[in-house]
């Protein structure tokens, strides 16, 4: 490998590579949340689902020696968490925010409890897809080793967009989210649509966890998600319930996460707490910039948060 220094190019490389590396969990969780919210329910528990996914992926990869079985296990664990949440919130008069917070605490507690034996061992990791063969710079080659989960997520983002726009099932999800009464009048089962959306959304969040434990940073620890699941929920609002926008927003958040370390590596060491907070500051700024007192948020499902 070359050991030359990259200087300020390193900051640019770090932030753009960090956008993909660090943005992938945001992407999967926000897509899951987007699908859930489109059906008219909120799932704040995806932070717990992300942790369950990360833990299951690591445990299964370690036990079976195959990281892809880990990814599948993460999806199943996520779906199971989603099934519990879906069962709760489709009961009459259950508040989905409260149920979500309960699921968040339950999911992280369960992941920490079941994950105790897997903190120390090293599990086989997902092999990256290398796009940097054209470059002879070690740094660029390393930056272009991209997680397969990222491609999966990016593909799902476009597919989901098409699903909402052009398919019958997608229209049903939107109808249920916008006006459950009208959907019911059309003969669509509100409950069934919501359960399926929540379960599928949680499965996506679980797969996002697999990226954390099996690719980057590539370990199972209790601090692995550190709030990313919650930020992803805000990210859905930020991207106006549009799956493709979720992809862009995730990249921005992932990149913002990398700004602090990348700047310190070139010797800009003042204000690193501020830089580390940049993803959150960014969220606030976008929220302030796009809010309007005159109308509700464009794209928000009509029945979101209503207890029907």
């Amino acid at each position: 490998m070359t050991s030359e220094s990259m200087g300020w190019w390193g900051v640019l490389l770090g932030v753009s590579a960090g956008a993909v590396r660090g943005g992938t969990p945001f992407l999967l969780v926000s897509l899951g949340e987007c699908l859930t919210e489109k059906s008219g329910k909120i799932n704040l528990g995806l932070e717990g689902t992300l942790l369950m996914g990360a833990m299951s992926a690591y445990a299964f990869s370690y036990k079976t020696g195959s990281p892809w079985i880990g990814v599948i296990a993460a999806g199943i664990a996520g779906a199971l968490m989603g099934a519990v949440h879906a069962f709760l919130v489709t009961r009459p008069k259950v508040n989905d925010i409260a149920a979500g917070i309960a699921m968040l605490i339950f999911g992280s507690g369960l992941a920490f409890f079941l994950g105790k034996p897997y903190i120390q061992p090293s599990a086989p990791q997902l092999s990256p897809i290398s796009l940097g063969g054209w470059s002879d710079t070690a740094q660029i080659q390393a930056a272009l080793k991209i997680s397969p989960i990222f491609f999966l997520g990016a593909g799902i983002a476009f597919a989901m967009n098409w699903f909402f726009r052009s398919t019958r099932a997608g229209m049903h999800v939107r109808a249920v989210g916008d006006s459950p009464a009208a959907a019911r009048a059309l003969g669509i089962s509100v409950e069934r649509t919501r359960i399926l959306s929540i379960v599928a959304g949680s499965a996506l969040a679980g797969v996002g966890g697999a990226h954390l434990s099996l690719f980057y940073p590539g370990a199972w620890t209790e601090a692995i998600s550190s709030g990313q699941g919650l930020m992803a929920v805000a990210l859905v609002i930020f991207s106006r319930w549009n799956p493709v926008h979720c992809l862009y927003a995730s990249l921005v958040f992932g990149g913002a996460q990398a700004v602090g370390p990348a700047l310190q590596a070139v010797g800009v060491s003042t204000g690193y707490y501020l830089w580390n907070a940049s993803p959150y500051i960014l969220t606030l700024l976008v929220m302030v910039a796009t809010c309007s007192p005159k109308r509700t948020l464009v794209g928000a499902p009509g029945a979101l948060g209503a207890s029907s």
Binding site: R21, Y216, P217, A223, I224, S226, A265
Partner: peptide, 11 residues
């Protein structure tokens, strides 16, 4: 903060 530590190491 594993994500930040990995990011720092990479940078």
């Amino acid at each position: 903060m594993p994500v930040k530590e990995a990011e720092a190491a990479t940078s």
